[in-house]
């Protein structure tokens, strides 16, 4: 099982996300994350689907999604060759001064951002590749994560290559 990322530009219409997730679901491809948002062209939204599977699943997922009438452009964005980012907001308990100091040190080390501060908790924002987010979450676990939310991966090609013209 490998992780794959697919980028798509699709018609910015109701139900498109449904079509894509439905397609993955009924063919048994396991979505890790899916992100969608409007682009500079309001007619198109950009979707990034991260999923796990084998070569067969990757091949079929791309070919099947490419058939979807609403999908205008689609390509795989190989994780090692593309720029991938994810954002997490993580609320961690800081019951005493020592804990708080440890958390602040971790924030500095990870180049994360403290975006909320209260007497017994801080909220941290961290952007990076999924692996970096994973290790930060691991690091915070012992302190007591109150809640967290991840955006899921967004990805694009390096250089001048774009989804639209590749």
């Amino acid at each position: 099982m490998k992780k794959y990322v697919i980028g798509m530009l699709a018609n910015n219409e109701a139900g498109v996300l449904n079509r894509i997730t439905g397609l993955f679901g009924r063919r048994g491809f396991n979505i890790v994350s899916i992100t969608a948002g409007e682009t500079e062209d309001p007619k198109l939204s950009r979707l990034t689907v991260t999923f796990t599977g084998d070569e067969y699943a990757r091949d079929q997922a791309i070919r099947q999604a490419a058939k979807c009438v609403d999908v205008e452009y689609i390509k795989e964005l190989p994780i090692e060759k593309s720029i991938t980012r994810e954002l997490v907001m993580l609320k961690v308990a800081t019951d005493d001064a020592d804990m708080r100091k440890d958390v602040m040190d971790a924030i500095a080390a990870f180049k994360a951002k403290q975006i909320d501060y209260s007497s017994r908790a801080v909220v941290v924002e961290l952007t990076g590749e999924s692996a970096k987010i994973d290790s930060f979450i691991e690091l915070m676990k012992p302190y007591g994560i109150l809640e967290l939310c991840r955006t899921g991966t967004v990805a694009m090609d390096r250089g001048t290559t774009c989804l639209k013209n590749s």
């Binding site: 067969y56 091949d59 079929q60 070919r63 099947q64 490419a66 058939k67």
Partner: peptide, 8 residues
Amino acid sequence: IDNAELNK
């Protein structure tokens, strides 16, 4: 004519 049928 359906690309998704190849190797499915």
